[in-house]
Write a protein that binds this DNA or RNA. Structure first.
Lengths: 193, 193, 193, 193
DNA sequence: CGGTAAGCGAGACGGTACGTCGCGTCTTAAG
DNA sequence: CTTAAGACGCGACGTACCGTCTCGCTTACCG
């Protein structure tokens, strides 16, 4: 039924497309979301504002796309033990939020998600939900190994872990490293009765 | 010992001060942080922009002060049982973040805290740390009643609880009510081995 | 010969251009130079402030351009006699400075010229010098008719006449009409020895 | 101990009075009329704005008073010959308008006089009219010496001279010095038929 | 294979808000 | 009862970006 593209006229430039995303990402890392302007992005990308507005409705949408463009796919290691898997997950999360860009991305995600339900759902759908699903595999394996209680709600554990990670990253409540702190909190959650 | 104010010139108007904070809060609740302008605040408060800028360096600072101004003092009920106390805390948190203003305030706090370490520390110091301290009393009472393990780290539990609350408020991961969901996560944390 | 404009981007709007000049002139006539604000001009012209600042660096420059835009071309009548010509010139000058706009324009020209050498030179070049040249023709004709001395310096006469006109307009030293007063002074200058 | 004065309360400070005038004059010379602010004058004079506003209704009035305060009294030399007297007058006028302060003062006088009839009358009454009267003495002496025509209107000559001086100062129409130029114009006026 | 429709960089457009400056008034405490 | 200090409500300043709108060009397809 639907054929989205009659495809007349000049097609949209792929170089422009990428230049825009790259400019957006570099500016995001350099000055942060609030301080970056569409005009600066256009200028850095060597592109007219029109070309950006033709693709994205605003800064939020553009930055969301830019972040999306560098998102790597969900990979969850299978180390053979629950805590091996968890340590890998924690370390991976630490890496993600370490770089300036990562830090800005997290801040921007949290900020926009807490401001707008729409963005929250978008991130939930694209980022958190897939990881939540993948995480359930880790828990199922642990159940099979009898490392955790058999009726453990893996979704709840994932949410709690994510919440703690978020909280620890924002407020840095402890003197120990982020990874160690998160690990300690996780132990509280998973302690086998 | 001596204070640093010789108090020369006309003192700053207390009415203006309060009018500004009230205008800021009402606009925050109505249109949200991003959409509110200093000019609108000044106009609603019946005050010149100068009078605002004399007190605050920018919107963030002003809104932080406005939120600060309505922060109620830490009160943690003593119901006689751990879960009675926890339910009171959860309900209180739910109330706080239920109103439009509360929702905006939380969003704004998270947003600014995740953007700037300085703000994060400010909120930690003024808001979270006092509650964390008060919370430890609840846990100590529970320990005395043998409702939880004797070596439980109350700070860690508070952080985990806060993180989960935050996460649940932003991403609404479950269909059940926020309160029920948070309660379920807390049970996971506090299950006596 | 060729102009230096590759003409990229959207060209500047001619309607805006004229609306700005008209708004500036009407406000100049209504409230005077000091009391008129760029914002009021922009608003009356139905134009953004930017559009004005893109064209002119400030109020002085804008008003100078506005006055320039209504400057009519130099016309000096040939009545057949020296005093016929002079009366025409005097009457013309009287008309020019009679209207509110004319009065404001003269005030503004004198004011800015006396404040800044740059403006003085601009008005000299665009307004006074051409008239000074045209005036020399009148004197030459009078010399041919033997109505004035043959070695009369027409430039000097023009300057003296202009100075007297200026002075008489500002300080209104006599009870008689401006025209009659100026005529009397001119007679002093041109009396044939 | 003696209290001869019925005056109650603190008397107005004479030092403040003078400090204000001096500050006004120095700022007038430095930055010009438009760019000087009451606040800057108050600050430089070490005086509160109130103290200025108690004395003067606005900047114009203050500056008028400041200029007035340094106005020297009318002195017209008697050299024994018409052109000796005139040269003294011309030189004196040149000196007055030579200094930065003098230049600013002239500009400010012309500017305000051409903008407002009220100011024009004030300057006419305080400055020009006395000099016009004094000048008539010079002409009368010249008449007695038969250096000029007996029916010469000294007021008209003074006005013409003043107008030419003004015009020459503003527009600098000639390459020769101001003094020489003015002298040349005067000769035109006074040439004995 | 040539017309034409869409995309392109550039940049002007009407706006909104910014943060600053100066106005002329008002309110303190000090003298 | 004046003074210096300085806050007040106000209005304009000139700047930065917003998102939209022409311009004069490509560019690649479709008839």
């Amino acid at each position: 039924m639907s054929e989205g593209k009659p495809k007349r006229g000049r097609p949209r430039s792929i170089e422009s497309h990428q230049a825009i995303l790259e400019a957006a990402l570099s500016l995001l890392a350099e000055v942060g979301f609030d301080a970056m302007s569409i005009e600066a992005i256009a200028s850095r990308a060597g592109v007219g504002k029109t070309t950006i507005y033709r693709r994205y409705a605003g800064k939020e949408e553009l930055v969301a796309a830019a972040i999306e463009s560098i998102r790597d796919k969900v990979v969850i290691a299978d180390t053979g033990s629950l805590w091996g898997d968890l340590d890998a997950i924690i370390e991976n999360a630490a890496q993600t939020t370490l770089s300036p860009l990562g830090r800005q991305a997290v801040a921007m995600i949290i900020s926009s998600a807490s401001t707008s339900t729409q963005f929250a759902q978008l991130y939930w759908k694209n980022y958190l939900h897939p990881r939540r699903q993948a995480f359930s595999v880790v828990i199922e394996r642990a159940k099979a190994r009898n490392e955790v209680k058999g009726d453990l709600d893996s979704g709840l554990v994932f949410d709690a872990m994510s919440g703690i990670m978020l909280y620890a990253r924002i407020f840095q409540p402890a003197t120990e490293s982020w990874q160690v702190y998160v690990r300690r909190a996780l132990r509280l959650l998973l302690e086998k009765s």
